[in-house]
Design a protein around this nucleic acid. Structure first.
Lengths: 369, 369
DNA sequence: GCTTGTACTTGAAACGCATCAAAGGGGCCG
DNA sequence: CGGCCCCTTTGATGCGTTTCAAGTACAAGC
């Protein structure tokens, strides 16, 4: 348990303190034999550099922090995955903290990361775009993900309003007359989706629209509850199109409808939002509008790198990814055999998942539409 | 960008350095008015304690590190969730690193965490139970998750072999004659599952068993490929029971079979392992054996706390969670209406998800069995 | 008025390392 | 043999905290 430090290594190897430090940080400065000797001593003694001391002495280390609202949300994971790969590409570590849907905790981890001399920090904020004002003048580069903010600062956001519009257009293209939107718009992102839906539908006053709150957490169980409620309505009050503000909600709705003997998509069509892996890699794929989470994470790191390399004080810089209205209406317009469309896409997505994804908001035509 | 440090706060507030430090760490030692003054100064200046310096000066901070092999694996997320909640309960932070299926990276992050003066570190190791020998004599408490290791040290493991046995018994109870196990047993956990299946089947030499490698990553696409291959076999060579070593694999298999016109569970029954949320919160639930991931994470933190509080050098200590053979055979024996069984369970799981889960390996009777 | 005690506050020392100016040691050229 | 230059190694300095022994101020008790 006795911690061995750099001076122990130095003494044991018969060199000086600074030489060992160089072996760690600037190996090219050392004579190969010295380096070898030191490395051997290090592993013999089981020396482990004290990161705190390194950071304190040397300024920022090459690592980024990422604060996510929740880990069991597929979209956040895509962000994490994109950020991870991009960070590694630049030789940076990525540490992830789970704010667990708690703004206090979010703030806590944010401060923690800023105080840890991370090279940069990213957040996928939960609710408010006016994040703690103090955060903007932080000593560490920070990038906000998946949120559009008016304050100066860096952010990468998917166009959530566009996603709502896309879904609505899809519904229109499918000839919907009565749309039910399921979910609580507790987060800005969801609010924007609802807004997009309303805007798109403003041009179609004949289409009836209804928004049903599904409870605080937007869980599959919540979706199931709403689905069951819809199923019990008389046929003429029943919608012909249901939009889950979240894929999890949507799949809950599907489960309930099917259980209650309502045919999907025969009697009711269902679509979700999120591009949650469960939507397309589950046994039966669900149609969903997919914001490019992977790409958001990647761009976030890129913005961080940019700030680091320029060393310039943060200018206002926004990146907006994915506005694939064209792609989508194109797809929706074509009346392709569903089978053909879905599976290849599923396979492609599954196999390229680890490498990279496109910029575009993609749509996965599933079995329930 | 100019970093404000503790001495700035002290000067500005007209007190000494140590007093500010006390305000941060031992507020009870200060006169209320002094405390108030300092706190105001802190927020006015936007002071943010430098964690590196704190850790260096004060020893370990109250935070744990968790290294996971992959973030998009539901089971790992359950671990993370359990660990998170338990850690917060004790007032500890939890930082998560994604090893991205790369042992180099796993080792890297492990060392990183150990060097950061974390109070403790947990890993869900990828392959070998003989983890880096140096790791055992580390200066920081460490707990291995979801792996059974012979080396001295702390670990919390689900009984993977029992899971295999459970699945096999399920197959037997369903009258299977020909079982196909899909997946590459690249990880110890999967190997043990296969072992369990074989052991259980050793008593039934009449049942034919086949293990099919699905490629390195065990993706849904891999499962789809195997499923398609199975579908194309002549009926008499086709299995009547398929086990996915992973839920993702299993759902890929189901997709393929259904696409190719094979009835599930009519002609082929399919089950998975993992308790991956996609298995039970997807539109159509999949039968799966669920190792208690949440509980493993929780127990892991508890073991960490134990080591910290005892300050004793790590004794050998193993915790083994979940051997729910009884629960499962009980369920399997009953011939309940599937609908009734599945949905309430689904709902219950969904709603208690955030709070706590049982110790037991649970089984979710889905639509494909 | 002096002592003892109480309640805060102070500031120097140490935490383990990276940095960097300076020193050391060759080799090469004149 | 001396002077130069280059390559390698040295070790003192400081990073921003926490800690803790020592100090201050003030009140109560004698």
């Amino acid at each position: 348990m006795a911690k061995v430090k750099i001076s122990d290594v130095a003494r044991e190897a018969g060199v000086s303190l600074g030489t060992v430090s160089n072996a760690l940080n600037h190996p090219e400065k050392l004579r190969p034999e010295t380096l070898k000797l030191i490395n051997e001593t290090i592993s013999r003694l089981g020396y482990l550099p004290n990161q705190s001391a390194r950071q304190l002495a040397g300024g920022a280390t090459k690592s980024f922090g990422l604060v996510l609202p929740r880990l069991d949300h597929g979209f956040s994971l895509q962000i994490a995955s994109g950020a991870h790969n991009e960070a590694r590409k630049h030789g940076y570590d990525l540490l992830i903290a789970n704010a667990d849907n708690d703004d206090i905790l979010e703030d806590h981890y944010l401060r923690y990361f800023m105080g840890t001399q991370m090279s940069g920090v990213m957040v996928q904020p939960m609710a408010s775009p006016d994040w703690h004002p103090a955060m903007t003048k932080m000593p560490v580069p920070i990038v906000h993900l998946d949120i559009h903010c008016s304050e100066p600062g860096y952010y990468v956001a998917a166009d959530n309003e566009a996603q709502g519009r896309i879904i609505a257009e899809l519904a229109i293209a499918r000839g919907a007359h009565h749309i039910v939107v399921v979910g609580r718009a507790a987060f800005m992102q969801l609010t924007l989706r609802v807004l997009g839906i309303h805007k798109a539908l403003a041009l179609h006053p004949d289409i009836k629209i209804e928004v049903i709150d599904a409870g605080e957490w937007n869980t599959a169980a919540d979706g199931y509850g709403i689905g069951a409620q819809i199923a019990e309505r008389p046929a003429d009050e029943r919608p012909d199109f249901v939009v889950g503000l979240t894929d999890v909600l949507a799949s809950g709705v599907v489960s309930a409808l099917v259980d209650k003997g309502i045919s999907v998509p025969g009697q009711v069509r269902v679509a979700g939002c999120d591009g949650n892996p469960l939507a397309w890699s589950g046994s039966v794929p669900l149609t969903t509008v997919a914001p490019p989470g992977y790409e958001i994470g990647r761009k976030g790191v890129q913005l961080l790198m940019e700030q680091i390399e320029n060393k310039a004080p943060a200018k206002i810089k926004h990146v907006r990814v994915g506005s694939a209205v064209r792609t989508v209406t194109a797809v929706a317009a074509e009346d392709i055999n569903r089978q053909e469309l879905v599976r290849p896409f599923l396979l492609e997505r599954a196999s390229t998942q680890a490498s990279s994804q496109t910029d575009a908001t993609a749509i996965n035509l599933g079995a329930y539409l």
